[in-house]
Simulated scan of single mutants.
Amino acid sequence: MSMACGCWHYYNRPPQLLLKSSLRLSSSSSSSSTVFCLSSKSKDDDEIDKSEAPIKGSGTTARGRRLLRIRQDKLQREYDRLHNYPAWAKVLEDACKNDTELRAVLGDSIGNPELMRNRVEDRIRKKGKDFRRSKTGSVVASKVTFRDFNPLDSYIWFELYGSPSDRDVNLIGSVIQAWYVMGRLGAYNSSNLQMSNSSMDHDPLYDADKGSKVMPSSFHDISDIEFQDNWGRVWVDLGTADYFAIDVLLNCLTVLSSEYLGIQQIVFGGRCMGDWEEGMTNPEYGYKYFKI
């Protein structure tokens, strides 16, 4: 009975006391030191724990990665632009900041050296051989001569100081076109010059009946204006227009030459001037024209 009670008291001790008792018993029964492993996990248990652990993400979203790639591409392009960009293209870009004409020439080609080169070459080709020639006119008056001029069938020739640019062709063409339109409408009729013979000291009177009864006077025909290098020409048939139409044209060309582009000489009549080559219409050899 006493043994049973002792066993009951032994096994009903707290776990800490049982562990201490077992350690004392084991150490007293063996002279060698013993290492006790209270708990251990097998290799299979570790693999199970790893498989059950949650998978960690990269910390970024798909949108974030796309934005990062875009930023990297932008930085790469900026690096290439600074280190591999042609020096002449950088000079043109800087010049565009203060030059509106150059900025208009380059347009949306800025940043693309090859396209910039093509735009500039095309501009130089259109302006002619002398790209830097001044466009402010000439202080020297144009020389005017007549060579067997027939008002019904003759050429009017213009000799410029250099190959005309597209702007020059448009200026001369617009003047000749306006001159022809006015002549076509009967503007050059000396039979009805009522205002030129009236005094402007008082309000003049215009006789509309007289103006409507005068004999019509109008141009008959005109050709397109052609240019070969620095020479230009236009064929005219003045019809019944009076000769003071020539004075009107010369007045216009005189101011045009002094203010906008230099005209070296104007020749009325003649079949061939300078090194004009009949039938040559190739733009690569300096041929240009203005459609009337």
Rank of each mutant, 00 (worst) to 15 (best):
R233H: 04
L152K: 14
Y10I: 02
N189T: 02
S27Y: 08
I70S: 12
H9E: 11
K143G: 05
W157F: 04
V120I: 15
S58V: 06
A241F: 02
S196Q: 13
Y188G: 00
A141H: 05
L82S: 09
L193F: 05
I176K: 01
T240M: 04
D44W: 09
L171W: 05
D207M: 04
L19M: 11
T34I: 15
I225K: 00
C252Q: 12
G286F: 03
I156E: 00
W157L: 01
D46S: 12
S30K: 14
S28L: 14
P54T: 07
L193S: 07
I263S: 00
I55C: 11
S28Y: 07
V91A: 14
Y11D: 02
F268R: 00
G107P: 04
L38G: 11
S212W: 09
R69D: 10
K135P: 04
I266G: 00
H9A: 11
D224E: 13
K90E: 10
Q228I: 06
S218T: 12
R271A: 11
G211K: 02
V214S: 03
I263F: 00
N170Q: 14
T100W: 08
A87H: 13
Y289E: 13
Q76L: 09
L160F: 09
P86H: 08
D49E: 15
L102P: 00
K213V: 09
S257R: 01
R125Y: 12
Y243V: 12
T61M: 02
S191Y: 09
G239S: 05
W276H: 02
Y285H: 13
G211W: 03
K126F: 10
E277R: 09
S163E: 15
A87V: 12
Q177S: 15
G186V: 04
W235M: 04
M116S: 03
C96E: 07
L185T: 13
G137P: 02
V175G: 01
R24T: 15
D275P: 05
E277A: 09
L253C: 03
I263P: 00
L205F: 12
Q76T: 09
F158Y: 06
G137W: 02
N230C: 13
E47T: 08
V144L: 05
S196D: 07
S142L: 02
G137Y: 01
E284D: 15
S163K: 14
V140M: 08
E226C: 13
P216C: 05
I172L: 14
G232M: 07
